[in-house]
Design a protein around this nucleic acid. Structure first.
Lengths: 201, 201
DNA sequence: GATTAATGTTAGTGAGTACTAACAAACGTT
DNA sequence: AACGTTTGTTAGTACTCACTAACATTAATC
């Protein structure tokens, strides 16, 4: 009984890995089967079609629950700290799922439903952040700003950083040598300063 | 005689457009032919194979000549102005060729030679910038810094901005509403300030 | 008007590939 | 030991698609 689940998960894992490297169309069901140490039939018995593999993988990928918990329990209402932990969590989730991100992006024209599934995440996260900003403003810990625009800025910055950090380095063959952690924390610090109310030291 | 060239260019243009949307494997030679208003045979007579189409497109794409001219004639040795024009040119070239960038990136595992062709560009640009920094330091207009690391920072920032600006907005369906031009100029301004020698107003 | 170069047309080949059907083997559970 | 569930095997189907060959057509050059 537990074998079903684990083989299913195992297939998904290998499929995402291969598709992340060679693209959805670049990988055959045979390849996925071999990489999973499983017969091709097993794949079709589990998922029915190649498209469903990707669909299933996309549905299993979601940072919404994780973010939900973060916003419910881990916030300190210190602006900089909170933005940092939100960003850090976002970065972690994106990095963990970077293959899926790429596949979804590449197939955005050919498999719109897959892309639709994936794009729910940032939209939901934007809502979370906007609610947080509203709360902070009520507490007098935030300047009166356009909550949506500022939430967007944060996401924008994070997405840009993720893409350059997680994806390009292996591509553009340049000397990295830039410390990753510090870049993020410094950006967040600046961003938080810009949002704090006027009375500063 | 001019017809050959123009049909060839026309095919390349349409091929890149389609591949940019649906991926290299997602497009058939038939589709490219139809989009180009041309027989499938014409394509094979011109390029021999589907792979050669992409290869030819990649070889035609290069911002090196453009950058070469910029570095030779258009610099003013005002740090901020120069970095801005370099960045702006980079952004323009990347935006003009964004389809090719994506294709090359997506096929980095399956068609390494294509990727190799594309990656010559940033490496060359890095060299240009490093030489520029060396000159500026000689003129006493630049702090003594690690030229390679700083050139990397600039390219890094530009690449990150390009990707979020040119590619993500249509993807993540978020309200853009952020002014593009100002974001870039502000970043460059900050970057330039960080590189100027100490004696500041 | 004849020649040449570029393109069109048609038909087809061969390889790859998603997916199916039918039966056999392994496995755990009771 | 019997049963049900999951997986493996094999063979095959239907389809797509890159690519070719042979011949017809247009268009420019001289």
């Amino acid at each position: 009984m537990s074998t079903q689940v684990s083989t299913r998960e195992h297939i998904l894992k290998q499929a995402v890995l291969l598709m992340g490297q060679k693209g959805y169309r670049g990988v055959t069901t045979k390849e996925i089967a071999d990489a999973s140490g499983v017969s091709e039939m097993t794949i079709f018995r589990h998922f029915g079609s190649k498209g469903n593999i990707l669909q299933a993988a996309m549905e299993s990928y979601s940072y919404i629950p994780c973010m939900e918990q973060l916003f419910a329990t881990q916030l300190t209402y210190n602006l900089e700290d909170d933005l940092y932990i939100i960003s850090k969590t976002y970065q972690n989730m994106m990095k963990r799922n970077q293959n899926l991100i790429w596949i979804g992006f590449n197939e955005r024209y050919t498999m719109p439903e897959v892309h639709e599934t994936a794009s729910k995440n940032p939209r939901q996260l934007k809502e979370f952040i906007m609610n947080y900003f509203a709360e902070m403003e009520n507490k007098g810990l935030l300047r009166p700003v356009d909550h949506e625009a500022q939430a967007m800025s944060l996401l924008w910055m994070n997405a840009g950083y993720f893409i350059t950090d997680a994806s390009l380095p292996s591509d553009m063959q340049m000397v990295s040598s830039v410390s990753t952690e510090s870049f993020l924390s410094e950006s967040i610090s600046t961003f938080a300063r810009g949002l704090k109310p006027d009375a500063n030291s």
